[in-house]
C-alpha cells in the first residue's frame, strides 16, 4: 500500500512538471490520482469502507491531494448534447428485468417499494413529475431527454432538458453551507474538485424522493458521491455511491452512462421546457394514491 501511495505521488509530481512545461491544451488526457477499482465488486466495496458519503468524499479528496483547480486554458471537453443510456427506469443497469433493484434496502423501505410495485401493477400510481415538479437528485441521473455539461474552472453545470433541470457543482474550494442554513433542496448542494479530468462531487441537503418510478424511495438524509469522467470521444460515465441510513443498509453503487448524440449539422438544440403547457397538467394525486388527470376532450382535429 505504501509503495502504491509513493508511486501515485511520484507519478503526480512528474505529470504536473510535464504539463506545466507543456503549456498547451491536454483536454482529452486524464491524469487522475484517484485509483478506482477496475470492477464493480471493488467499487461497491469502496463504498462499504466508508460510513458516510462525506467520509468517502474526504478520502477521495485526500487521495487527490485536494484536487487541482482547472486551468481555464485547458478545460476538459464535454461539449455536445448527451442522452442517458440503458434501461429507463433502472437506477442500476444491473437490475436488468428483475422486479427488485440491486440496492440493499432496510425492511421499511423494502416494504414501501413492494407496496408501490404492487399498486403500480394494479394501475395505481402517482409521479410528481406529472404535475411539473422536478425529479430531484439522485433521480436526476436517470431521467431521459437531452443533457449538456458546461465546465468552467469554478462551476460545472450539469443540465437536463426536462423542466430545465440544472445542477451546479461548485469547484472553487467553497464548503457546503453551514448546517444552520441548510434545508432540503430538489438538487441539494453540490461541491466538488477536479482530479485530472475527473470531476468528484459530494451532494447533500436533498429532499426525499424516489430514484425512479419503479425504484425505491430515499429520505432527506440521502447524500451522494459521484465521479464523472469522459471515457471516450462520445461517452461520459458517472460512478455514484448513494448513502441513506433510513433506506439503505449499505451504500448503493451504480454507474450511469451518457452518450453524445450525433449532431453534425448542429440542428439539435435544447429549448426552454415549459411543463405547464402540457394539457395533462395539473395532475391530482387521489386519496387512493393514483393520478387524476384534468378533464380534456379530443376533437376530430386531434
Amino acid at each position: 500500500m505504501l509503495i502504491g501511495a509513493n508511486w501515485s505521488r511520484t507519478r503526480k509530481v512528474l505529470l504536473n512538471v510535464a504539463l506545466a512545461a507543456a503549456g498547451a491544451a491536454a483536454t482529452t488526457v486524464s491524469f487522475a490520482a484517484i485509483q478506482l477499482p477496475a470492477d464493480k465488486a471493488g467499487l461497491i466495496e469502496l463504498g462499504r469502507q466508508h460510513r458516510t458519503a462525506a467520509e468517502l468524499y474526504k478520502a477521495f479528496e485526500a487521495e487527490a491531494d485536494g484536487g487541482k483547480r482547472l486551468d481555464p486554458a485547458r478545460l476538459p471537453d464535454w461539449t455536445g448534447v448527451y442522452s442517458r443510456q440503458g434501461v429507463l427506469f433502472n437506477f442500476d443497469q444491473d437490475q436488468g428485468r428483475n422486479r427488485m433493484p440491486t440496492a440493499k434496502l432496510t425492511p421499511e423501505y423494502e416494504k414501501r417499494l413492494v407496496d408501490k410495485l404492487d399498486a403500480i401493477a394494479r394501475g395505481i400510481e402517482f409521479d410528481q413529475l406529472s404535475n411539473c415538479a422536478p425529479p430531484g437528485h439522485p433521480r436526476w441521473m436517470t431521467e431521459p431527454f437531452l443533457r449538456d455539461f458546461v465546465i468552467t474552472p469554478d462551476i460545472t453545470y450539469l443540465i437536463n432538458e426536462m423542466v430545465n433541470d440544472i445542477r451546479r457543482i461548485y469547484t472553487d474550494g467553497r464548503d457546503h453551507v453551514p448546517e444552520a442554513d441548510r434545508y432540503p433542496l430538489y438538487n441539494g448542494d453540490s461541491i466538488g474538485f477536479w482530479d485530472g479530468a475527473r470531476l468528484v462531487i459530494h451532494t447533500n441537503q436533498l429532499r426525499s424522493g424516489q430514484y425512479q418510478r419503479t425504484q425505491p424511495e430515499y429520505s432527506e438524509q440521502v447524500e451522494t458521491v459521484e465521479i464523472w469522467e469522459k471515457v471516450d470521444e462520445r461517452t461520459l460515465v458517472a460512478h455514484v455511491w448513494v448513502y441513506d441510513p433510513p433506506s439503505l443498509v449499505e451504500p448503493w453503487y451504480a454507474q450511469h452512462t451518457y452518450l453524445s448524440l450525433s449532431n453534425p449539422d448542429k440542428s439539435l438544440r435544447i429549448r426552454y421546457w415549459d411543463c405547464g403547457e402540457n394539457q395533462n397538467n395539473e395532475v391530482i394525486q387521489t386519496e387512493s394514491g393514483s393520478s387524476q388527470f384534468r378533464d380534456f376532450t379530443f376533437t376530430e382535429s386531434d
Partner: peptide, 14 residues
Amino acid sequence: VSATLVVALALGLQ
C-alpha cells in the same frame, strides 16, 4: 503512464 513518455509528450506539446 510512463513518466518518460509523459515528459516527452510534454516537450513535444511545448
